[in-house]
Simulated assay, not measured.
Amino acid sequence: MRDYRVGDPVDILVVEDNPGDVRLTKEAFKEAQLSCELHVVTNGEEALDFLYRRNEYESAIRPHFVLLDLNLPKVDGMTVLEKICDEPVVRRTPVVVLTSSEAEEDIVEAYELQVNAYLTKPNTPDDFVELVQTLNEFWFELAKLPPIQS
């Protein structure tokens, strides 16, 4: 098991199919000057392969944190959340939904599937950087994360 300590580099799985949003996410993390490694997958099937360490992701690390879009090709974000709940090792990884959907039914369903937080994507790059800084402060400075099982 790997324990996370404040200031350690953070491995974050970003599950996002929109190249513009991926670029914005990378820029926001860089601008926020966070010590992190972003691992990007572009659909729900790849996200599950990464988390379950299968197919091309057999040697993938276990991320400290997952940023998950809901509107994904192949396997949608809600199904990814459902599958995460089914696996004891994977389900202890904090998952934050970061999506454009403000639909109440999506919010309710995500929380029923044990998402740790539900956020809507900011409209401006500056707001995105602020969101990333807030995520960092809460999840990696204030919150206590469980050890990661190898």
Rank of each mutant, 00 (worst) to 15 (best):
Phe29Val: 06
Tyr4Cys: 01
Val95Ser: 01
Gly44Trp: 05
Ile84Cys: 03
Val95Gly: 02
Asn55Asp: 15
Val14Gly: 04
Leu119Pro: 00
Val129Gly: 07
Asp49Gly: 03
Tyr111His: 13
Asp17His: 07
Asp3Ile: 11
Lys121Gly: 06
Pro146Phe: 01
Leu38Arg: 07
Val89Arg: 12
Pro9Phe: 02
Ser150Glu: 09
Asp11Pro: 03
Gln149Arg: 09
Gln133Pro: 01
Gln133Thr: 13
Leu13Arg: 00
Asp21Gly: 03
Glu82Phe: 12
Asp3His: 12
Leu67Gly: 06
Val15Leu: 05
Glu104Arg: 13
Ser101Pro: 06
Gly77Arg: 05
Ala47Glu: 01
Ile84Phe: 02
Ile148Pro: 00
Glu46Lys: 12
Ser100Ala: 15
Ser101Leu: 07
Ile61Lys: 13
Ala143Cys: 11
Phe128Tyr: 14
Gly7Ala: 02
Ala143Asn: 11
Val80Ser: 05
Arg54Trp: 11
Leu142Lys: 14
Asn18Ile: 12
Val6Thr: 11
Asp106Phe: 06
Glu27Lys: 15
Lys83His: 11
Leu48His: 01
Gln149Tyr: 12
Thr99Gln: 05
Glu102Tyr: 11
Trp139Tyr: 11
Ile84Ala: 03
Asp69Thr: 10
Pro122Arg: 05
Asp127Pro: 00
Phe65Arg: 04
Gln33Gly: 11
Lys83Leu: 13
Leu72Val: 11
Thr25Val: 08
Cys85Pro: 00
Ser150Gly: 02
Val22Asn: 02
His64Tyr: 11
Lys144Cys: 10
Ala47Arg: 04
Tyr111Val: 04
Val115Ile: 10
Asn116Val: 08
Asn71Trp: 13
Glu109Lys: 15
Val66Tyr: 06
Cys85Thr: 10
Leu135Gly: 00
Val115Phe: 07
Phe65His: 07
Ser100Asp: 08
Asp86Arg: 12
Glu56Asn: 14
Gly7Val: 00
Phe50His: 02
Asn116Pro: 03
Met1Lys: 05
Ala110His: 07
Leu24Trp: 10
Asp86Val: 09
Pro94His: 04
Leu98Asp: 09
Asn123Ile: 07
Leu34Lys: 14
Lys74His: 14
Asp86Phe: 09
Thr124Met: 08
Glu102Trp: 10
Leu38Cys: 05
Ser35Ala: 13
Gln133Met: 13
Phe140Thr: 02
Leu145Arg: 04
Ile148Asp: 02
Pro122Lys: 03
Arg62Tyr: 10
Glu109Val: 09
Thr79Pro: 01
Glu37Ile: 14
Val14His: 07
Asp49Arg: 07
Asn71Ser: 15
Glu46Gln: 15
Val95Arg: 04
Glu58Lys: 14
Ser35Lys: 13
Ile12His: 04
Glu46Gly: 07
Val108Cys: 09
Ile12Tyr: 00
Thr93Tyr: 04
Arg91Asp: 00
Pro146Asn: 00
Glu109Asp: 12
Asp8Tyr: 01
Asp17Gln: 04
Ser101Ile: 10
Leu68Tyr: 06
Val95His: 03
Ala110Asp: 02
Asp76His: 09
Ala117Val: 08
Ala110Glu: 03
Arg23Trp: 11
Leu113Asp: 02
Val80Ala: 04
Pro9Ala: 09
Lys121Ser: 05
